[in-house]
């Protein structure tokens, strides 16, 4: 296994959290993993993307030029990265914000309205977890149970007790992504 992933969107869409959670899940599975972030000075808006490498073998460079998977949360990300995707690569698109049909041959495209699904769950900020659910099911990196366990442990670590209510909605988002039918 040698997976190179780019996750990209606006600042504030939870790109970095999505990436670090995935890195955590991979680590818990005993895999090697690197996470490298890139973002602007803005707290919200601007561009945010991260590069993740997951492998059984030792990982050299954390920089990803031609990803085997790409998750895009907005249109600028699609424009910037879709051309770099490897042949037979996986492309997950937030179809709530990206209307474009992708014409590139030889890749697998999954369009999921993650922002809309998140709004239905009650908070559009969990769109990232829905996309992550779609991704880990597709790539079979971890089981849904392990993913939920990892999510809970990280949220508890980050926010201590006061934000326990966030766990519920994030868990539901991850589940709905996992169960999403194309």
């Amino acid at each position: 296994m040698f997976e190179e992933l780019i996750i990209s969107g606006y600042g504030g869409q939870g790109i970095m959290f999505c990436g670090t959670l995935l890195a955590h899940l991979a680590m818990e599975e005993g895999l090697n993993v690197t996470f490298f972030p890139s973002y602007g000075a803005e707290m919200r808006g601007g561009t945010a993307n991260c590069r993740i490498v997951i492998a059984r073998e030792e990982i050299g460079s954390p920089m990803v030029k031609n990803p085997s998977s790409l998750i895009v949360f907005n249109k600028p990300s699609l424009i910037k990265f879709s051309g770099q995707l490897k042949e037979k690569g996986l492309l997950i698109i937030n179809s709530s914000l990206v209307e474009e049909e992708i014409v590139k041959e030889g890749i697998e495209v999954i369009r999921v309205p993650v922002t809309q699904i998140a709004q239905k769950l009650g908070n559009d900020k969990v769109a990232n977890m829905i996309a992550l659910g779609v991704y880990i099911k597709q790539k079979k990196i971890v089981s849904l149970e392990s993913a939920i366990k990892g999510l809970e442990s990280i949220l508890l670590l980050k926010n201590k007790e006061e934000k326990k209510n966030l766990i519920e909605i994030n868990r539901e988002a991850l589940k709905s992504g996992f169960k999403y039918n194309k």
Binding site: T20, A23, M27, N32, V33, T34, F35, F36, P37, P62, M63
Partner: peptide, 9 residues
């Protein structure tokens, strides 16, 4: 900056 920003186990 790359090794500094990179997250790893």
């Amino acid at each position: 900056g790359i090794v500094g920003q990179m997250i790893e186990p």
